[in-house]
Design a protein around this nucleic acid. Structure first.
Length: 280
DNA sequence: ACACAGGCCGAAT
DNA sequence: ATTCGGCCTGTG
């Protein structure tokens, strides 16, 4: 058992319902979340605004793993201050405050976002569950059954046809090729943000948006600003005078506005836009 | 039936 | 350098 007190607010529900991660679920309306973290199951409980309780079936290195996963060392207060660039962002910060970025496993994150294109959250979750329940290790914890996310080794023998049968659609070959030709650089430390992004985009099925998501959610490269259709509409309306523009353009605008905190700003905006159902 | 969903790719401007 | 249709499948 482990308890962590953060420097500032950490809201479990906002963090796991904002769409950055697909495999943590709550059974009690957001107070408790269960999910898997590489080799183990973890249980996260909200004690108060800044404090979480963490349990796991494996105690070894739990604190260091969880702190990394939850980005314990982020200067959250500074981030909140620096993304409030105008009245609108002040409003959004009030709404989304407590949402935290998390640092996800590279392989799992890449597969997740390769599957995400032109899909929706329930379907992405279903696809990830098919992979986990079929090829991941089964773990019982607190009288519940969990499946770890399969490693690359677990999936190298899986055929393309299997992924097609899982109804991955045209994404099946992206997944298959990604597993067969898993690039070495993904496991190396990120040195140059732009170069890393370009390398990601050389992988079949990874374009700008998916590359940005992987780099943000898995590498923890916080100056990335993924632009999906929602963010694109938001940016056009509020930061481009309503003039239509490409996702690429809005990505640049977002990075310029929010700099090293662009990733947090993006998730704050995304959460706000989706939850308040504002007209975009 | 038909459009669209948390994009990407390749071809044609 | 930017725009456009097609792509698997599920949902309304």
């Amino acid at each position: 058992m482990l308890e962590l007190t953060f420097d500032n607010e950490f809201n479990l529900k906002k963090t796991f319902e904002c769409g950055q991660n697909f495999r943590f679920n709550s059974t009690d309306n957001g107070k408790t979340y269960y999910g898997t973290l590489n080799d183990r199951v973890i249980k996260l409980e909200q004690i108060n605004k800044k404090r979480l309780k963490i349990n796991s079936n494996i105690q070894k290195n739990l604190e260091i793993r969880v702190k990394r996963f939850l980005r314990f060392d982020d200067d959250y207060a500074l981030m909140l201050k620096e993304i409030q660039i105008d009245e609108l962002m002040k409003k959004i910060v009030i709404f989304s405050q407590g949402l935290r970025l998390i640092k996800q496993d590279m392989f799992e994150c890449s597969i997740s976002y390769l599957l995400s294109q032109c899909s929706n959250i329930p379907r992405i979750k279903h696809h990830l569950n098919q992979l986990s329940t079929t090829y991941g290790k089964r773990v019982q914890y607190n009288n519940k059954i969990f499946f770890l996310f399969p490693s690359r080794d677990d999936l190298t023998k899986v055929t393309l046809e299997t992924f097609i049968n899982f109804k991955f659609g045209y994404r099946a070959k992206y997944i298959y090729n990604f597993i067969q030709n898993y690039p070495d650089f993904l496991e190396l430390p990120l040195t140059n943000s732009e170069i890393y992004n370009q390398n990601l985009q050389c992988i079949e099925g990874i374009g700008q948006k998916v590359a940005d998501c992987i780099q943000l959610f898995s590498c923890g490269d916080l100056n990335n600003f993924p632009v999906d259709v929602w963010i694109n509409k938001f940016m056009i309306k509020y930061y481009n005078n309503g003039k239509k523009a490409s996702a690429k353009k809005m990505n640049q605008v977002g990075q310029k506005l929010f700099r090293k905190w662009a990733g947090y700003a993006q998730e704050f905006i995304y959460y706000y836009a989706r939850e308040t159902k504002i007209n975009l």
